[in-house]
């Protein structure tokens, strides 16, 4: 397992580097959240989820729904790394006629499972997939990733009420708790705490983890799998821009890209990070 963890940590760093290059090439985008979620995506696609990149439409596959669509660079970078499509496509992010739009669009490229961009819709989409599994008596699992600022959308709470009502134990909702959004820090802009208590009051099985610790991510997803009758919410505490000193915890990096100097600095810093992210 230790080797596996080291391997996934390395992968997460590679995903980060690709995100930096993708955004530099694109000239716009949302780097902080995407970079902060590299471990979660690496863990899901290389350890947790039952998927086969050669059978992206397998009806029994696990599904990932990305609700916070602006985080999509980390999804694209992970899918390419996992072999869903050619890495070269990453450098066309946000370009005219590229299948990699600035926010995810279903069926635009193998592996993308939903359309999002208008925040707050993904948890409901994931619920629909989880309900379909129950109706069809299939045992695939559905993972949904939202941001934390996104939880300001009312639809999230409509969905949060419904999933426990239907005992959706096949649903795991991972919240990227990075405490920033476009215009500021979430707790100043719109306080979300006590988030754990709120979700528990809605009857979710709630876990709180370090979203950069591969072992914690994998173990939380495994624990969610063993819960019956209730959906699980995993609050993944992350550092936006993790691994790039000048970005970390700065909301200003939620929605702007790098210039060449910044990208160079970021890539250099990421090159010295090996095996240090979760343990620093």
């Amino acid at each position: 397992m230790l080797n596996k963890i080291c391997h996934l940590e390395e992968l997460a760093i590679k995903i980060r580097k690709n995100i930096v290059t993708m955004l530099l090439e694109a000239g716009s985008g949302h780097p902080a959240g995407a970079i902060g979620m590299a471990e979660v995506f690496a863990a899901l696609y290389f350890e947790v989820m039952n998927i086969d990149p050669h059978k992206p439409d397998d009806p029994n596959r696990d599904r990932l729904v990305l609700s916070a669509g602006h985080m999509v660079p980390v999804w694209y970078a992970t899918l390419a790394e996992r072999g869903y499509f050619d890495e070269k496509l990453l450098w066309k992010l946000r370009k005219f006629d590229s299948p990699l739009q600035g926010h995810p669009v279903l069926a635009s490229i193998p592996g993308i499972e939903n359309t999002s961009g208008s925040l707050g819709q993904g948890l409901s989409q994931a619920i629909g997939m989880a309900l379909a599994a129950i109706i069809d008596q299939k045992d695939y699992r559905v993972y949904c990733i939202t941001g934390d600022g996104e939880l300001q959308e009312g639809q999230i709470w409509e969905a949060a009420m419904l999933a426990p009502k239907y005992n959706l134990a096949n649903l795991a909702w991972i919240i990227d708790r990075n405490r920033i959004q476009l215009s500021g820090n979430t707790e100043e802009l719109m306080p979300l705490e006590q988030l754990r208590a709120k979700l528990e009051a809605f009857n979710w099985n709630v876990m709180e983890i370090n979203g950069h610790d591969i072992e914690e991510i994998v173990s939380a997803c495994n624990m969610a799998r063993n819960v019956t009758q209730r959906p699980s919410a995993i609050i993944a505490n992350t550092t936006p821009g993790k691994g790039i000193d000048f970005m970390e915890n700065k909301y200003e990096w939620h929605g702007k890209s790098f210039n060449k100097t910044e990208a160079k600095k970021a890539l250099a810093e990421l090159s010295t990070l090996s095996n240090r992210i979760s343990k620093v």
């Binding site: 939903n114 619920i127 997939m129 599994a133």
Partner: peptide, 10 residues
């Protein structure tokens, strides 16, 4: 949105 998710599973 739930309906969209259902339809994506046929």
């Amino acid at each position: 949105s739930i309906a969209a998710g259902l339809s994506l599973c046929n």
